[in-house]
């Protein structure tokens, strides 16, 4: 290791005096890595359905969908968007933006749609 790297102590030492179990013992090299459950998997495992529904939990404290009408803004410029392009499904504000939309390559269209989670997802 280079002296300046050593001096900055940016690399975490593998052995820590204050630990009862060292990381290298817990996660030995070459062994199959631990598959950590993601939130998507953690929540079903919590079995919230077995508890009274009025008891607060991670899922039922989520905010419900908005009661206001959905605000539609132009995907490109952010202006108010009265129109939707039927071909690309992008929202646009005026004729100028429309021209831009029509000249966009497809992957850009998909990326713009992905920004509001409306892209076509191939599975």
């Amino acid at each position: 290791m280079e002296p300046e790297v050593m001096e900055a102590e940016m690399v975490l030492p593998t052995h820590m005096w204050f630990k009862k179990i060292q990381t290298y013992d817990k996660y030995p090299k070459g062994q199959a890595r631990v598959r950590w459950k993601q939130l998507k998997q953690i929540i079903p495992a919590e079995n919230y359905q077995n508890y009274p529904p009025e008891e607060p939990n991670y899922v039922n404290i989520e905010t419900p969908p908005s009661m206001h009408p959905c605000r539609r803004i132009c995907d490109i410029t952010g202006y108010e968007a009265p129109y939707v392009d039927p071909r690309t499904k992008l929202r646009y504000a005026n004729a100028q933006v429309f021209k831009v939309i029509r000249s966009l390559p497809n992957d850009y269209v998909q990326r713009y749609l992905a920004l509001r989670n409306a892209a076509v997802v191939l599975r």
Partner: peptide, 26 residues
């Protein structure tokens, strides 16, 4: 427009496709 369009998602999460109410409605 980006200057205020981006933080606007706190108040309109549906701008990034999250179907939940924004901070004021909360």
């Amino acid at each position: 427009v980006e200057r205020f369009r981006c933080p606007e998602i706190l108040f309109n999460p549906n701008l990034i496709g999250i179907d939940q109410a924004g901070m004021d409605e909360m």
